[in-house]
Amino acid sequence: MTAAPPGQIKYDVFALAEVRQDRYKLLAETVDERLRAFKCERSLHLQEFARSRVSNWEDHGHSRTYVIVTARDETVDVAGFFTVGMTALNLERASRGVRQKLMGNITLTQTGAYSIAELARSDDYTSAQLPGTVILDEAKNVIRRARAYVAGRFVVVDARREVFEHLYQPAGFKEIDLAEPPMDMSDVEFVTACAVVKSW
């Protein structure tokens, strides 16, 4: 497990696809059990994704899920997770200044991008024990590795405005547009934001 600053949990990050290989059967069973019981009252969308939709998205290849695993009560627990996939970045509604900063002298208004589609911490852990910035840094590490093989300039997130302002904006993400909220959060404002991968 990774070394952690005082007050933070020690953890390892595993791709769910890797955990589910035959040689990790016991770990896979425990991780799946913890995901089915994952608590995230701040976002019932994320809670529901962990409990019932993660396998479908994983099996169909729409995204890859990474679990943050820690030791707890003489077993392992899923303290958080994130998903990484691909999406299209449409800059048509972005301001001219934002487009210029992101695209430079390239005149495309639509391009491919990495996507951090889900990012969550279990309610069983505080932000001091597992800061959102730590989970985001792990997602960025996965994207950096992918970029070394297949290139790619941008990473996109759709996030609640307050999450954007507290987590993604300080990490260099720029607001592009308002985003369509998940069906169960239609009364919450979401934004689409992106960052340039090589600036990390």
Rank of each mutant, 00 (worst) to 15 (best):
V19L: 06
R96S: 12
A3L: 14
N56D: 14
N141Y: 04
A195K: 08
D158M: 07
L167H: 09
E33R: 10
P5V: 08
A151W: 00
Q8L: 08
D12N: 13
L44R: 14
K25D: 14
R53I: 00
Q8W: 12
T192K: 04
L108E: 12
E92R: 14
E33T: 08
L27R: 09
F38Q: 04
G172D: 06
C40H: 11
V196F: 00
I9R: 02
R64C: 09
K25C: 07
A128V: 15
A120Y: 04
D184G: 01
R34F: 01
T133E: 13
T87M: 03
M1D: 12
Y24S: 10
F82D: 03
I176E: 10
R147K: 15
M103F: 12
T107E: 10
N141S: 14
N105G: 05
T107M: 10
I68W: 01
L26N: 13
P181K: 05
T111F: 05
W200D: 12
M185L: 14
G7L: 10
H45S: 11
A151Y: 02
G85H: 03
Y11N: 06
A159V: 04
K174N: 05
R23F: 13
T126E: 00
W57D: 15
R93A: 08
P5W: 15
V134W: 09
A128E: 15
L44S: 08
A195G: 05
V191K: 03
L136G: 03
R144H: 12
F190K: 03
D32R: 10
S55C: 10
L27Q: 10
D22Y: 13
E18W: 08
V98Q: 04
M103Q: 13
I116K: 01
G152S: 11
D22R: 15
Q47P: 00
R20A: 07
H60P: 00
I143C: 07
N141D: 12
A195Y: 01
H62M: 10
L91G: 01
A3Y: 13
E48Q: 11
K39W: 01
A195N: 04
V31K: 01
A193W: 06
G132C: 09
P131T: 12
I143W: 03
Q169M: 09
V197H: 08
P182Y: 08
E58M: 14
Q100H: 13
H62N: 07
L108F: 12
Y168M: 02
V150R: 06
E189W: 06
R72A: 07
K101M: 07
S122V: 01
R147Y: 09
A79I: 02
E33L: 11
R99E: 10
D158Y: 05
